Amino acid sequence: MIQVAPLLVLAFLAITFLQSGYDKIKDWKGNVEWLTGHFANTILAKQVPFALGIVLVLEVVSGILCVSGIIQHLVQDVVIRGLGFYGAILSCITLLFLLFGQRLAKDYDGARTIVIYFIPAVLVVFWLN
């Protein structure tokens, strides 16, 4: 039986992270420049390219796992502990990394935005657990 709600949230996470990863790859230099200023007064000031690389990998792998989970659910009817479950967990971890960065930079509006993404990500972990 196909569960539509988890598939919709997995699609939301996949779109979010794959598009964000694509943007980071396409405009690496611009992202590094902007983030260098954003994190200028933090412990990440000299680590921006490295930190951005970590976030890029987390986002792309999260997106791929979410897409794979959707396909797995549609083809194999796997609902519990499938690839989507692990994609949702990695999505939550990725969002926690992003939240940490926003809080570190004292960008509280940005941190609040991350929470909006975190809620459905946790919800889909709950649904697929």
Rank of each mutant, 00 (worst) to 15 (best):
V9C: 05
I119A: 14
V115D: 06
V48H: 06
I93R: 13
S68Q: 03
I80W: 07
Y86R: 00
Y117D: 08
K26Y: 07
V115E: 03
V78K: 08
F100C: 12
G82I: 13
D77S: 14
I89L: 12
V9T: 10
L18E: 02
I64Q: 00
L52Y: 01
R103N: 04
K26T: 04
W127D: 06
W127Y: 13
G37C: 09
W127T: 07
V55Q: 08
N129Q: 11
I89T: 10
F118L: 15
F39M: 10
L98N: 02
A14M: 03
Y22V: 06
L35D: 01
Y86M: 01
G87N: 02
L104T: 12
K46P: 00
L83V: 05
V124T: 08
F85R: 00
Q76R: 08
Q72F: 11
S68I: 01
N129V: 09
A5P: 03
I114F: 06
I89C: 14
L74C: 10
L65I: 08
I15K: 00
N31A: 11
G21H: 01
V55E: 01
Q102W: 09
I116Y: 15
I71W: 07
T113E: 09
E59M: 10
T113R: 08
L74G: 02
Y86P: 14
V75N: 12
V55S: 09
L58A: 04
K46W: 03
A11T: 07
G69W: 09
A111P: 09
I116A: 15
M1S: 14
I2M: 14
I2H: 12
A5E: 04
V124N: 05
R103C: 09
G30M: 08
V61Q: 07
V122G: 13
F97V: 15
A88Y: 08
V32M: 02
A5M: 05
E33N: 15
G63W: 03
A51D: 01
V75I: 15
G30P: 11
T113H: 13
H73F: 11
R81N: 14
W34F: 15
P49S: 10
V122P: 09
I54F: 08
R81S: 12
I43V: 12
L35E: 00
P120T: 07
V32K: 00
C66H: 05
L44C: 10
V75H: 08
D23L: 13
L13W: 10
V75S: 12
F50K: 02
V75F: 10
A45I: 06
L8A: 14
L8W: 08
A105I: 11
H38I: 03
V122C: 14
L128V: 10
I116E: 09
T16I: 04
P6T: 10
L123K: 02
A45L: 09
V4T: 13
G30N: 05
A40G: 07
L10Y: 05
Q102L: 14
L35V: 05
Y22F: 15
F97N: 03
Q3C: 08
A14N: 02
N129D: 05
V48W: 00
L99T: 04
A14F: 06
Q3F: 12
W28K: 06
A105M: 14
L99Y: 11
I93L: 14
T16E: 02
